[in-house]
């Protein structure tokens, strides 16, 4: 870890002034910055500590959604009664991530900016196109059991590790940010960039931008939502496949459905094809399976990650079936 400056800031303009330095990083909980600094993956010259910015509130919006400040901790997000009531899958997703200690430290803004846990990315002695553009992707011919099946490229097959973002993707979250030139916003669907040949460029945030919060639009369907995560131990592990699902069924037909997948792509994967196929159709396990197959038809598997296709498909069918059965009760 190189030597670095440290600046604690108390308002957004100050944060932006310090954050304009291209070698600066905003420090939230530090749970995915300090570790990368220790391993030499990231080497900032200045840390701008944003934890004390007045961005730590969760408020209802006039339209019936929620506005979540960027420095809200994962713990406070998951414990908030309105999050649990209106978007239970979001609370579940956050609770499925990391550990109690890390959730107390980690912030919503930082969670969105988590880096991949690909073992080649985190080992600075290995080539990695995300870390050193042009150095190659050893995962493709090497260890890729937990790598992407959707939206990857020949340059990078890493997956995004966030659970929270998967639920946010399902609920059409919008990311708000500030820059020296004024505020901006990005729908989550546009927040993460496609991998293409630039895997080192991960988000559409302008340089120096500070995430200030997220808004969740009202989504009555989200009240009947859940998140399931499969991993290689029962807790305190990253997903090998996860699904956020919400379902509104009336008279056996799907009125509205939301589906997003985790640990299958470089970003949370909103399953819009599956949603399109299902909407208006019968709420049956067969239909759910067909919809999952439609979405996963685009999957490109490597020798050791093809199981993810079956895993995600099975999760979709199981979760939607359960939601449909509960709705019928």
């Amino acid at each position: 870890m190189r030597e670095f400056g440290y600046q604690r800031v108390f308002d957004v303009p100050d944060a932006l002034a310090f954050g304009a330095d291209p070698e600066a990083r905003y420090l939230g909980g530090g749970t995915n910055l300090v570790d990368l600094m220790k391993t030499g993956v990231d080497r900032p010259a200045l840390l701008v500590d944003v934890r004390e910015l007045p961005l730590d509130r969760i408020e209802a919006t006039d339209s019936g959604g929620l506005r979540i400040g960027a420095t809200v901790t994962n713990s406070d997000l998951a414990a908030h009664p309105e999050v649990r009531r209106r978007y239970p899958a979001l609370a579940q997703a956050v609770l499925a991530g990391a550990s109690g200690q890390l959730r107390n430290m980690a912030t919503v803004g930082g969670n969105l900016l988590q880096r991949t846990r690909c073992g080649y990315f985190t080992d600075s002695s290995q080539p990695c196109n995300k870390r050193i553009p042009g150095s190659g992707c050893p995962a493709i011919k090497g260890e890729h059991r937990n790598h992407a099946i959707l939206g990857a490229s020949e340059h990078c097959v890493a997956v995004h590790p966030s659970d929270m973002s998967v639920a946010l993707a399902a609920f059409d979250a919008v990311v708000h940010y500030e820059t020296a030139d004024g505020p901006g916003e990005l729908p989550l669907a546009e927040f993460y960039l496609p991998v293409g040949d630039t895997p080192h460029l991960e988000t559409a945030l302008p340089s120096g931008a500070l995430i200030t919060g997220i808004t969740l639009p009202p989504a009555p369907v989200a009240a009947d939502s859940r998140y399931r995560k499969v991993r290689e131990r029962a807790s305190y592990a990253f997903a090998i496949g996860s699904v956020a699902a919400a379902l509104d069924v009336r008279d056996g037909a799907v009125r509205e459905v939301r589906l997003a997948f985790g640990a299958v792509a470089s970003r949370p994967w909103r399953a819009r094809e599956a949603e399109r196929v299902l909407t208006g159709g019968p709420a049956t396990p067969h239909a759910f399976a067909d919809a999952a197959d439609t979405e996963l038809a685009a999957a490109e598997v490597l020798p050791h990650n093809r199981y993810k296709v079956a895993l995600v498909r099975n999760l979709v069918v199981a979760m939607l079936t359960e939601l449909a059965e509960e709705a019928a009760r």
Partner: peptide
């Protein structure tokens, strides 16, 4: 582990548990 992956360094910060290996002292 010094990387937030084991919990051995858990302390309470303002009454809440946290891993002190990922907490900079200055912060």
């Amino acid at each position: 582990c010094d990387l937030g992956q084991c919990g051995a360094c858990t302390v309470l910060l303002d009454g809440r548990r946290a891993v002190s290996c990922l907490q900079l002292a200055v912060a």
